[in-house]
Simulated scan of single mutants.
Amino acid sequence: MLATSLRLWRRDPGLYRPLARTCLAMALGSLALGALRPALLIPGLALVALLGIPWLFAVMRRLSTEAEPDPEINHL
């Protein structure tokens, strides 16, 4: 819900709406993992994988579109 207040949310809904759904699914997966209470190493590795999925999705989606960089955003 916080992301919908961003200016970029309205400008590029093709990226941010699917990304928000992906983040919601990964959050639910993280909660399910916590409810299972597996051994310590398993949730650590699973959380790294689960939280990496939205990041990977966003990077792959951004690279697949050939959009011009936004002049309003300071790119380093």
Rank of each mutant, 00 (worst) to 15 (best):
A3V: 13
A3F: 08
S5W: 07
L6H: 11
L6T: 12
R7T: 11
W9C: 00
W9E: 01
R11E: 15
R11L: 13
D12W: 07
D12E: 09
P13R: 06
P13L: 02
G14L: 01
L15M: 06
L15D: 03
Y16N: 06
Y16P: 02
Y16D: 02
R17K: 05
R17P: 01
L19E: 02
R21G: 15
T22Y: 05
T22G: 14
L24Y: 06
L24H: 14
A25N: 09
A25E: 03
G29C: 06
S30E: 11
S30W: 04
L31I: 10
L31C: 15
L31W: 09
A32F: 00
A32E: 00
A35P: 00
A35M: 06
L36E: 00
P38H: 04
L40D: 14
L40N: 14
L40R: 05
L41R: 14
L41G: 13
L41S: 14
P43I: 02
G44K: 01
L45M: 13
L45C: 09
A46M: 03
A46Q: 03
L47R: 12
V48D: 14
L50G: 05
L50P: 03
L51H: 15
G52A: 10
I53T: 09
P54Y: 00
W55T: 12
A58Y: 06
V59T: 10
R62N: 12
L63K: 13
L63N: 13
S64Q: 13
S64W: 05
S64L: 08
S64P: 01
S64H: 08
T65H: 12
A67D: 14
E68F: 03
E68P: 04
P71R: 00
E72M: 04
E72C: 11
E72K: 01
E72N: 06
E72L: 05
N74V: 13
H75D: 02
L76S: 14
L76T: 09
L76Y: 12
L76K: 12
